[in-house]
Amino acid sequence: MAPYAPSFAQALELLMDHLAPVTAPAVDPQPDHREVRLSQARLGDRGVISQVHVRPDVDHHGLSADELERRLLELGFVEGAAIEVIHEGAIGRDPIAVRLDDMRVALRRHDAADIVIRLDARAAAQ
């Protein structure tokens, strides 16, 4: 996949900040510490998980929020874990594969919506 032009990435950033005003986590004011939901992360995005909180008011395809949260936690999606998006599926860029600390994990974007990552300064600046 071709890298995104900086202008496009910035536009996307602005767009996403506008699109998720209510449920999105507080966005760090510093531009080099952008936070993004894993479901919206792009290939190469890298950072640290800042929050895993599965929202009970959102449909998780019939699974309870508590159950999904525990499954994510059990596979290592926990606050403080280092994460990087390393692969995207061919159709709709879904599912995604991430490097999570020392291991690799695949998941659907839908199930990744409640994992928030704080992007590395370097990655965010790109």
Binding site: H61, G62, L63, R71, P95, A97, M103, R104, V105, L107
Partner: peptide, 14 residues
């Protein structure tokens, strides 16, 4: 029958 329930796809890539 399963009212749209979908298991999450969460899998380690060994």
């Amino acid at each position: 029958f399963w009212r749209g329930q979908v298991e999450p796809f969460l899998m380690e890539l060994p």
